[in-house]
Design a binder for these strands. Structure first.
Lengths: 153, 153
DNA sequence: CTGCCTGCAAACTCTTTGCACGAAT
DNA sequence: ATTCGTGCAAAGAGTTTGCAGGCAG
């Protein structure tokens, strides 16, 4: 899905929900979709302000749930205090994250079996799965060997 | 492993690390091991104070990492703001959680394949896995049908 | 025009920390 | 006698919310 198509999807989602299409929301959208790596709410605020400097922190926090509900952004909580976000490119719904402790980097890995696992395990408990997440924390071999890593900032 | 054995393990862990065996730490240990369900730091404070009312919130927060490092407690972060804890009964190291959104209950499911997955995926990235977590969020069928659920408070 | 949306700043939640006193070794 | 552990209260980080004014529909 192209950025233009995602942008259209966002406008349509807002309209259908009776939400208004404001400059701030569009600036936040554009800021998010200009990124290829994970970003935090605070970073998104910076990016959005570069497009429209009237965007406030509150509006960023109020817009993020809209964009995750409309399946435009994926929220990634690695349990580090702050949440990360990433534009959803294609149909990559079922993904696991590998979090490098040394390089502070998050890798997204397709993991279609998660959905099967969630259904299997839930049905035994009389539950219907809504979502699943699989995360691996790991150390960087190169960083531990050489003291630095190309991925690291 | 019995509670008495776990208690001994805790004392030994403290001594080996040069940490002191205080009444407060023992009260927090006993409070935690008197529980069969997940609890929060705040709940643990209540439980511990019932044993020794001199226990403070700060000491609970300072003791929790000691107990997780010594593999006596498992920390479970389901991304809900507060963290949950559970005494580790046997050798159930690799577990997934199924979180019921309606009943606010956390089920622990043995998932030994997680370790294999973590290794496989990490090695492709030049990483060495440290830990992995797998969580499924689900709705309660009975709650959605009848409006109540036996597991719910 | 109506009422949702906004920015601002204060409030909130969970957790961490600085300090001076107290207790374990 | 040392030195670590403690309670208290304040600080901290990330996020949410109440309010008065502003802009989309």
């Amino acid at each position: 899905m192209s950025i233009a198509a995602s942008r259209e999807k966002f406008r349509r989602f807002l309209s259908q929900k009776g939400l208004r299409v404001t400059n701030q929301r569009l600036a936040i959208f554009d800021a998010a979709f200009g990124r290829k790596e994970h970003f935090t709410a605070e970073q998104l605020l910076d990016y959005a302000r570069a497009i429209d400097d009237s965007v406030s922190r509150a509006t960023v926090y109020r817009t993020l749930p809209i964009m995750t509900e409309s399946a435009l952004l994926r929220e990634v909580d690695i349990g580090s205090g702050e949440k990360f976000y990433l534009p959803i490119a294609g149909n990559n719904t079922q993904v696991a994250q590998v979090v490098c402790i040394d390089c502070d980097k998050i890798f997204e890995i397709s993991a279609p079996f998660m959905e099967w696992y969630g259904s299997t395990v839930s049905s035994k408990l009389g539950l219907t799965p809504v979502s699943q997440r699989l995360q691996v924390s790991a150390h960087c071999d190169e960083y531990r060997r050489t003291g630095s890593c190309p991925r690291r900032g």
